[in-house]
Design a protein around this nucleic acid. Sequence first.
DNA 1: TTAAAATACCTTGATATCAAGGTATATGGC
DNA 2: GCCATATACCTTGATATCAAGGTATTTTAA
Lengths: 162, 162
Amino acid sequence: MDHVDKILAQWQKERPDLDVAPMGTLGRIKRLHQSLMRRMEQTWAAYGLNDSSFDVLATLRREGPPYALSPSDLMASTMVTSGTMTHRLQQLEKAGLIERVKNPADGRGFLISLSDKGFALIDEVVAAHVATQAELVSGLSDEQRAQLDALLKQFLAEFEPA
Amino acid sequence: MDHVDKILAQWQKERPDLDVAPMGTLGRIKRLHQSLMRRMEQTWAAYGLNDSSFDVLATLRREGPPYALSPSDLMASTMVTSGTMTHRLQQLEKAGLIERVKNPADGRGFLISLSDKGFALIDEVVAAHVATQAELVSGLSDEQRAQLDALLKQFLAEFEPA
DNA sequence: TTAAAATACCTTGATATCAAGGTATATGGC
DNA sequence: GCCATATACCTTGATATCAAGGTATTTTAA
């Protein structure tokens, strides 16, 4: 009988005409997401980053050499709008973590690349981030996590078709 | 090989020293949350609401008669800060969906209650919301959903101790 | 009784986000 | 070659959120 179960019981009593079982699943995903994000934010904050800035730097880093993508590529990878990406890039450029160069192949666009400082920072932060994540999932056994992965993957496939 | 698998493969190549398995689990929760919220927002928007306003109205509605709670109770139920709740209540009051009365038992505080209009609206919206949720989980069988529920519940228990 | 501490809620200032629309450049059909 | 359309990115305006701090009231305890 956790918090979500209590909410479902309240609805059951007030609106017995509704089948609120799916609300339990989606409610737990929402609350879990919130708790997980809050913990991960702490790690990022320790290095002067947040979800947004980590997201961009990590996307560039894991891309491999030459650690550069266009703003459009970054928008697609991180699932944010162009206005949001513009804002993120301004902050990161101001912090000296990325550099932008005119795209030689397309006069309309730019390429965003990790600065040396940005590369060094993200390489350090991602290690701390992975450690935080390991701690966060430690409440599940390896087998349970594998089972959860499989279910989440199928669920997600509905919304991110290959 | 979904989007998250591709991200893990990139990290595997770039940083083979890190165990990124937990990142898969947490990444799928994040992306799933984002997709699910976007779809639910559409339903709320059709009734002039959003996540925030639905959250408050639904909390009051499922509480049962007299459909009233203090701002502090609402903050605890919805896991937001006092500033956020103040803002939400201002919007809802402006829209005529809630009413606030001085708490007779505690001169420092208020009680927030559903207006007739607010009650009628949330009763209609929650039905549409539940239908949306049923649609969202339709990609999983009942058995898979039950299995997912159990794993999410255990996972969440780590962060929301009874 | 009364002063200190706790509580309830609001205000302020900063950041992140999105939707809609704007400007510059590239591309494709004629 | 040239114009219509598409693309790439930025700007604007609005909303949501939080952290930190403020004011009023209640509770605690000397």
